[in-house]
């Protein structure tokens, strides 16, 4: 691990599976002998609002709270470009790394034509100028390829594992994923994980 606590934020839209992604990452870290705290958004935002999960990974007996202070995220895993930007502005710094899924989820007023969704390429190029490293992952497409758009979150977990910021062996992630899902969804999610990992390593 490069820094301690290593601060990860999973950012997205309610329903995209960020709670499960943060849970699987935390479980893999625990299996690898690391300490973890997780802070979540639950409740009303789960119905299509902006959501984020904070995961802080560390070693030893530190007192680490569940929330990441503003400007202190080391890695932002963004499930959706606009909300990645939103979270990056609040929690990122020029030392932050970003993994972002390039598939937008449009807010209601954008769907209605009352507001404009910012240009995705422009957002991504702006973000990549702001931070240390930015990787675009076509997570929704890769999830389709793995078997279902519902596995987008697992593609993103794969991408996070692929970056190896936490120095957790990928086998730990795979074991946690295999154990978490019902047998009929296991293979698809492992495929999604591997596609995500491959995407950041290419």
């Amino acid at each position: 691990m490069e820094k301690q606590p290593y601060n990860l934020i999973f950012a997205g839209v309610g329903g995209q599976g960020n709670v499960i992604a943060s849970k699987l990452t935390a479980l893999a870290a625990v299996d690898a002998g690391l300490k973890v705290t997780v802070g979540e958004t639950f409740g009303a935002s789960q119905r299509g609002g902006t959501v984020m999960s904070h995961v802080r990974v560390f070693q030893g007996d530190k007192l680490v709270g569940p929330l990441i202070p503003r400007g202190r995220a080391h890695l932002i895993i963004g499930f959706e470009p606009l909300d990645t930007l939103r979270i990056l502005l609040a929690y990122g710094s020029r030392h932050t790394k970003v993994i972002v899924n390039d598939r937008p989820v449009y807010p209601l007023n954008v769907l209605a034509g009352d507001a404009e969704y910012p240009d995705v390429d422009k957002m991504i190029s702006t973000m990549s100028e702001m931070v240390e490293d930015l990787k675009v992952v076509k997570a929704t497409d890769l999830a389709f390829q793995a078997g279902s758009a519902l596995a987008t979150n697992i593609v993103m977990v794969g991408a996070l594992a692929g970056l190896n910021c936490l120095a957790i062996p990928t086998g730990k992630f795979e074991a946690v994923i295999a154990n978490f899902f019902k047998p009929q969804f296991k293979d698809m999610n492992i495929r999604a994980f591997k596609l995500g990992m491959k995407a950041v390593r290419e």
Binding site: G15, R47, G48, G49, L89, E116, Y117, D119
Partner: peptide, 20 residues
């Protein structure tokens, strides 16, 4: 003082929750 690197960024539309 943190440097303001948000200049020139597009306004982010809000994302309130909605009925499914």
């Amino acid at each position: 003082q943190a440097q303001d690197n948000t200049a020139g960024l597009p306004q982010a539309p809000p994302r309130p929750p909605v009925l499914c």
